[in-house]
Amino acid sequence: MIKVKDLRRSFGSIVAVDGISFELGKGEVLGFLGPNGAGKSTAMKMLACFLEPDSGTAEICGADILTDPMKVRQSIGYLAESAPAYGEMTVGAFLKFICDARGIKGRARMEAIDRVVKLCAIESVYHQSIETLSKGYHRRVGLAQALIHDPEVLILDEPTDGLDPNQKHDVRLLIQKMAKEKCIIISTHILEEVEAVCTRMIIIARGKILVDSTPKELKQKHQANLDEIFRKLTEHRKIA
């Protein structure tokens, strides 16, 4: 469902993403790992058609991100790192706007909103303006926004950041529940999360893919836990 081919992007002299390629199918949950500034968010922004790559391309659900970005945007749900939303709007008004923008109307709109509000447990803040929400609720509103059209592909940039342990657990359960039907990419710093939900993991540093494997395989190969493996791989990189 996702085919990434040699994606590259730099900002001035800094190369953020340096030729990454991978393929991902339905039912897979990919954990995108890497130290800060490794290029995870930039790569996700390119897949969500917010940034244009300098070279290379990607195909999502059969549509190319360069030639058919509108179709790509329709078929993905994207949660950006800061979970952006319009602070002055209430949660309800915000979700209605997202439905309007995605062309979900009438009864379908009501049902879609009902579904995601329950799914993300934001009933209690439905009438509250977004700028007054706590970080956890804010992020869950962002998640609701990404799920509202029941997309085939989900791109979530640190979906559990700022959530308390219970909420983290809930979001992980939610991802696991959706995993069979969808193709999901999540970026995270939390390695236990990768073990809990991901069927595959990619570690990137300085824009390059260092490892593309499954958490199980990786642990077997290195005979260590993910935490140690991650440190070994990315620190080694820094010194070199």
Binding site: K45, R73, A80, P84
Partner: peptide, 14 residues
């Protein structure tokens, strides 16, 4: 400033 442009321009809106 608020970053909501990233939301707006990743919706199916040109």
């Amino acid at each position: 400033r608020s970053g909501s442009i990233e939301l707006l321009l990743t919706l199916p809106i040109t």
